[in-house]
């Protein structure tokens, strides 16, 4: 029967509209569901996700030692040339010359947070930090040197 189908169609349409209105009505009457973060106000308690990729950093331990061997894998992996590794040769205790990192230059202004440098690093010397407040008055300040002053490679990292 055509008329029965017609009434069924109207009834199901009304039911589906009511379902939608029930959900928005629930949200309206339950302000606790609000997911908005009032950012500058909650800065002290703000918790960023660990997966969030904000910038590349090179962790240093308490002896000011890092794990970077200066192999330039990250520089080669970077698709837009945001990383420049300047290497030097150090003479170790046995009198042998060994390649080491002099300056690990990182251009935050060009970086697309693609994570390829972190995947390319054989010694896990660099990683992604979840910081995000990168605003600076001069763009030269976005060009960063990742290895600290006077830092050296950790013992046993090849």
């Amino acid at each position: 029967m055509y008329i029965v189908d017609y009434i069924k169609e109207v009834a199901s349409a009304v039911k589906s509209l009511a379902t939608g209105m029930k959900l928005t009505g629930y949200y309206f009457t339950h302000p606790k569901e609000i997911i908005t973060q009032e950012y500058p106000d909650n800065r002290a308690t703000l918790k960023m996700a660990d997966r969030f990729k904000g910038e590349v950093i090179m962790p240093h331990d308490e002896n000011n030692e890092h794990a970077c061997t200066g192999c330039t894998s990250c520089e080669l992996a970077c698709p837009n040339g945001s990383i420049k590794v300047i290497t030097k040769f150090e003479v170790n205790a046995e009198g042998k010359k060994k390649k080491a990192v002099d300056q690990h230059i990182y251009h935050l202004d060009m970086c697309t947070m693609c994570n390829l440098c972190i995947e390319a690093c054989p010694t896990d010397a660099i990683k992604m930090a979840n910081t995000f407040e990168h605003s600076v008055p001069d763009r030269n300040m976005l060009i960063k040197r990742l290895n600290n002053n006077g830092s050296k490679i950790r013992e046993g990292v090849e």
């Binding site: 949200y27 302000p31 609000i34 997911i35 009032e38």
Partner: peptide
């Protein structure tokens, strides 16, 4: 305000 509350915003 109504729109914001219905969309779980402030």
């Amino acid at each position: 305000r109504v729109a914001a509350f219905m969309q779980i915003r402030m």
